[in-house]
């Protein structure tokens, strides 16, 4: 228990009681080299026996995996970003192509079409709301600083699902007969592989090393260097996400280099761990409880005997 235990920069493993913990491990996902091949999705499912989500086309570019959830611990997002149209009225035509229609003569203007791809994953936050609210101690901080669900403990109360500011963790609903139905499931950063010094399955598979695994502090340096290189090359949209230890979750174990606003990828622009406001909440609840007690007492006192 230290000063920043509820909010602020922190070494999560030592805060969780580990004395000689190894260096904190995490991901740096450089979406500028992601080719949307989904090897990470498949490698994760094969290693962790994650069952299928559903066999249904969603029509949202090449993303038919919908989102991170109990049956999807890695999710590749696809955003077809049409060329920045000069001051085109963003009229909602009701037709699929939002924004001005493509001019019939494509030759004249230079459409710098972009197809953004990014492999999303649990953030393994420094301040993990899911871990904080878990009433059974199933969600725990590993010695590597990662956040892992203990399948043999979780009773499926679902509190973590509502607490996660990124909407990562979920309670598994199906398919029928799956042993983990009813309990919370999410990326474990391949905790079992880490205990044997092996790389997580998705990082091992990623063909272009968009997903990089390593020590979090070293990854933060690499991320900063990479974003500066991209800025030098004129990719001004490149920005880092989750690498600032002072942010609302104390920095994340899985940080990203994005090429657009976070919400374009379905990520919250300024996430904050709910635990930050917990002391305030308990104080207010204490006042309300006291008021209730007093109210009850007054109800009896004021009456004629």
């Amino acid at each position: 228990m230290g000063p920043n235990s509820l909010f602020g920069p922190l070494d999560p493993a030592s805060d969780a009681g580990y004395t000689d913990a190894p260096k904190r491990k995490g991901f740096f996902t450089d979406t500028s080299v992601c080719i949307g091949c989904k090897a990470c999705e498949v490698a994760c499912k094969e290693w962790n026996d994650v069952p299928e989500n559903a066999f249904e086309m969603l029509g949202t570019s090449y993303d038919n995996s919908h989102s991170l959830n109990a049956n999807q611990w890695r999710h590749v997002a696809f955003i077809e970003k049409p060329a920045a149209k000069p001051s085109a009225p963003s009229v909602d035509l009701g037709m699929p192509a939002v924004g001005a229609p493509v001019s019939d003569v494509p030759q004249d203007e230079k459409p710098d079409f972009q197809w953004l791809m990014s492999s999303d994953v649990c953030k393994h936050c420094t301040h993990a709301a899911c871990l904080d609210v878990c009433p059974t101690g199933s969600l725990f901080r590993s010695e590597f600083g990662t956040v892992v669900v203990q399948d043999d403990i979780c009773n499926g109360c679902g509190y973590c699902v509502a607490a996660c500011p990124y909407g990562v963790i979920d309670r598994r609903r199906g398919p029928e007969g799956d042993p983990k139905v009813g309990i919370a499931q999410k990326c474990t950063l391949c905790y079992d592989r880490l205990t044997d010094g092996q790389r997580p399955a998705c990082a091992a598979a990623c063909p272009t090393e968009s997903i990089q695994y390593g020590d979090v502090d070293e990854l933060r340096e690499r991320a900063t260097a990479r974003v500066e290189l991209l800025h030098e090359r004129g990719v001004m949209d490149a920005r880092l996400y989750g690498n600032d230890p002072d942010d609302g979750v104390g920095g994340t174990g899985a940080m990203f280099l994005l090429l657009d606003e976070p919400e374009v990828y379905g990520l919250p622009p300024d996430p904050v761990v709910t635990t930050k406001d917990l002391p305030r909440m308990f104080t207010r609840a204490g006042m309300a409880g006291t008021a209730l007690l007093i109210g009850a007492a007054l109800s009896f006192v004021r009456r004629r005997p």
Partner: peptide
């Protein structure tokens, strides 16, 4: 294979917005 079939579950045809408008093709 479950893990591949769910990634691209249905046969589809890609058309440009202009062609879609010309032939009344509705997204999805």
């Amino acid at each position: 294979l479950e893990h591949l079939a769910e990634l691209q579950p249905e046969m589809f045809v890609e058309v440009s917005p202009t062609l879609a408008r010309e032939r009344g093709l509705e997204h999805m």
